[in-house]
């Protein structure tokens, strides 16, 4: 499913004295089937951009191509609901959206809203819950009885049950402990590798972005400063310096090794790869 932003701008509170341009002239083509990160400081426009992906926001100017849907500014856009089935958006701290009396009911809620039969909705719910690693014993429990990490996975299952082609997640690991965060990120990666879903991740965690994503969109003041392979962005010293980007720990270490005279391949991404490269040099 194609994602193409053409000359997109978005202005909040357009007709009021405190109008604020959140997005200016965005041109973006997000690669299908890949994991793309969207990074940038608070206020860079990340959340605004992401809310255009399922038409929660309609651009002030320009148009967006989302698969078969064409969202144009200043036009009455129809069938937005259908779009929301194809682009699943998971907000930050999604566990707060749980409200049904049982987990299964909550996960089935979404598909039912989209007109899918009750039977199939519950089937999908079971399947989604199993994908996120929630055991059937918990299906009848009240969401409030679960731990934070479990609730989060249930909330994500609620979106997965819609079987979206594109999954957008805003800070999915926020507030989770390292184990929970790792489990979640592994889940997200598997959704991409196994189910070939296009994943878009908004994150502040450059370590996670570096380790897991294929492409990165770097935003600043409502504009796209960089869009390309994640590896290339974090290897570009100039860009990093100019934009005060926080270096992933691994990259920082790699750079310091280089400064100390060790040759480490630019494409070495993990600690394992770095250790191997350096060890080989030492053994020579």
């Amino acid at each position: 499913m194609r994602i193409h932003f053409e000359k997109i701008s978005y202005i909040y509170d357009r007709n009021l004295p405190f109008a604020h341009t959140a997005l200016s002239d965005i041109e973006l083509d997000i690669r299908e089937g890949k994991i793309t990160a969207i990074i940038g400081e608070t206020g860079s426009g990340k959340s605004t951009l992401v809310q255009h992906l399922n038409a929660l926001l309609i651009p002030s100017s320009g148009q967006i191509e989302l698969g078969d849907h064409l969202i144009k500014a200043n036009e009455k856009n129809k069938n937005l609901k259908k779009l929301r089935k194809e682009v699943g958006l998971v907000f930050q701290f999604p566990e707060y959206q749980l409200f049904e009396s049982t987990i299964l009911d909550d996960v089935a809620f979404g598909p039912i809203r989209f007109g899918i039969s009750k039977e199939e909705s519950y089937e999908r719910a079971r399947s989604a819950l199993s994908n996120v690693g929630i055991s059937p014993i918990l299906y009848d429990r009240n969401p409030m009885e679960l731990s934070g990490g479990q609730k989060r996975r249930v909330a994500i299952a609620g979106i997965l049950a819609l079987d979206p082609k594109i999954l957008v997640l805003d800070e999915p690991a926020a507030g989770l402990d390292p184990e929970g965060a790792k489990r979640l990120v592994d889940l997200i990666v598997s959704l991409n590798r196994e189910f070939n879903k296009t994943i878009i991740l908004v994150s502040h965690d450059n370590d996670m972005v570096y380790s897991y994503t294929d492409d990165t969109v770097f935003m600043r003041d409502g504009r796209v400063i960089y869009h390309g392979p994640t590896l290339d962005l974090f290897n570009d010293g100039e860009l990093i310096k100019k934009n005060h980007l926080l270096l992933p720990t691994v990259v920082n270490f790699k750079n310091r090794l280089r400064e100390a005279g060790f040759e480490v391949d630019e494409n070495a991404r993990t600690i394992e790869q770095i250790a191997e490269a350096v060890s080989r040099r030492i053994s020579r």
Partner: peptide, 8 residues
């Protein structure tokens, strides 16, 4: 890091 190097 130490773990990775130990493996080598």
């Amino acid at each position: 890091v130490k773990e990775a190097f130990k493996n080598h």
